[in-house]
Write a protein that binds this DNA or RNA. Structure first.
Lengths: 176, 176
DNA sequence: TGAACATACCTCGACACCGAGGTACTACGT
DNA sequence: ACGTAGTACCTCGGTGTCGAGGTATGTTCA
C-alpha cells in the first residue's frame, strides 16, 4: 500500500521525501500515521529496485533534499501494480482506496475497467462477517446491536460502491 | 486486530486452534486471509502473557487438539482492549469492525457508549483523502472519476455509520 | 491400494513495520 | 542567549507477518 502510494505520487511529479510524507499523510494518515521510519526504508527499497532515482538538491530552508524521480522501470512497475493488483488490494478497503487514487495512471480505459470489475466481482460475492455454519447471517438475524451495526454499515457501503462501480464501468465502456 | 479477535472468540467459549482459525477466517478472512503461521505464534504470545491456557485433548478425528481457554487475566485484557482501544482501532475500519464484533463483551453500556463516541468524534472530523493545501476537497471538485469515487463511497459509508452511531448511542444512553 | 483431502499443529527465515533516538540546519520569539 | 518548532534525513532494535515447508492421523473415493 505504501509503496504503491509512493510510486503513484512520484508519477505525478518528482518530490523529496519530506514533501512526499506530507502527501502520504494527507492520503492515508487519517487511517494510520506514516512514520518516517517506515517511509525512508521504503524509499530505499524502491531505489535499490531501480524504480526511482534520487538527486541531492540544496535544501530550501534547512538540510539538503533528496529529490526522488520515478524511473522508466518505476513507471512500468506502477502500471503493473495498478493493472494486476494483489488480492488484498481488491479486498482491503484501505488498499483499494489507495489503488483507486492512482488508477488514472493506467493509460487504457479498458485496463481501468478490468480492475473495477475485479472489485465488482468481489463485492457481489455473498459474504458476511458472521455465519451460522456456512450460511451468511443478515443484519436482521443478529441480536447483538454492534454486530448488526457492522452489517448495516457494510451493506450501505457495498450498495453505494456497487452503484458507483456500475455507473463508472458504463462510462468507461462507452469510451471504447 | 488478530489478538483482539482471538480474545473475543475465546471469551464466548473455549476453542482449539483449528476451529479458532475457521471462525477468524469467517470474520476477517474476506479482507485478508489468516495464515496458520500468523495464528499459532499469536496464540503462543497470548499464552506466554498468561491471557489464555491450553489443555491437550484427544483429537476428534485426527491429531490431538490444544483446547484454548481464556484466563481471568485474558478476560480482563479483552475488556481493557475494548474499553481503551488504540487510535488505530478507531480509525482503521477493519480494526474498528473487529472491535465492534466483540464490544458486547464490555459489561457496562456506558463504557460501550464511550467507545462509540470516540468513533463518532473521529467521523465528525472534517477529513478527506485529497487536499488543496490544507483544505479538504469535496467529491464535486475532483476531475478524476476514481478519486471522486473514493470520496463518494467514503461519504456514503460515513453517513450510514453516523446514523447508526446516533441511534445506538441514544438507545444505550436510554438504558442508564 | 493409493491418491487426495481434511484435521490439527508446528518451525524457519526473510522481511516489513515502527517507536525511539540521532544529526543538522533555519527561524522565531523573549 | 536560549528554547522551541519546523525542515530534512537517517539508523537501530524489537516485534509481527507470512510463504514455504514439515509432521501425523483419519476419511473418501476410485
Amino acid at each position: 500500500m505504501l509503496e504503491l502510494a509512493i510510486l503513484g505520487f512520484l508519477c505525478d511529479t518528482p518530490l523529496h521525501g519530506y514533501e512526499l510524507r506530507k502527501r502520504l499523510t494527507a492520503l492515508i494518515g487519517h487511517v494510520r500515521p506514516v512514520p518516517e521510519s517506515t517511509l525512508y526504508p521504503a524509499i530505499k527499497r524502491l531505489e535499490k529496485a531501480g524504480l526511482l532515482a534520487r538527486e541531492t538538491q540544496p535544501g530550501a530552508t534547512a538540510a539538503p533534499r533528496q529529490v526522488l524521480t520515478l524511473t522508466g522501470a518505476g513507471r512500468a512497475e506502477l502500471r503493473d501494480r495498478l493493472a494486476s493488483p494483489e488480492r488484498a488490494d481488491i479486498t482491503d478497503e484501505n488498499r483499494w482506496f489507495v489503488l483507486l487514487a492512482f488508477l488514472r495512471h493506467l493509460p487504457e480505459p479498458s485496463a481501468q475497467a478490468e480492475v473495477l470489475r475485479r472489485r465488482l466481482v468481489f463485492l457481489e460475492e455473498p459474504a458476511s462477517f458472521f455465519y451460522d455454519g456456512d450460511r451468511p447471517l443478515r443484519a436482521e438475524e443478529l441480536e447483538d446491536p454492534f454486530r448488526r451495526g457492522v452489517l448495516l454499515i457494510a451493506r450501505a457501503t457495498g450498495e453505494a460502491e456497487l452503484r458507483w462501480l456500475r455507473i463508472t464501468l458504463e462510462s468507461l465502456d462507452g469510451h471504447l
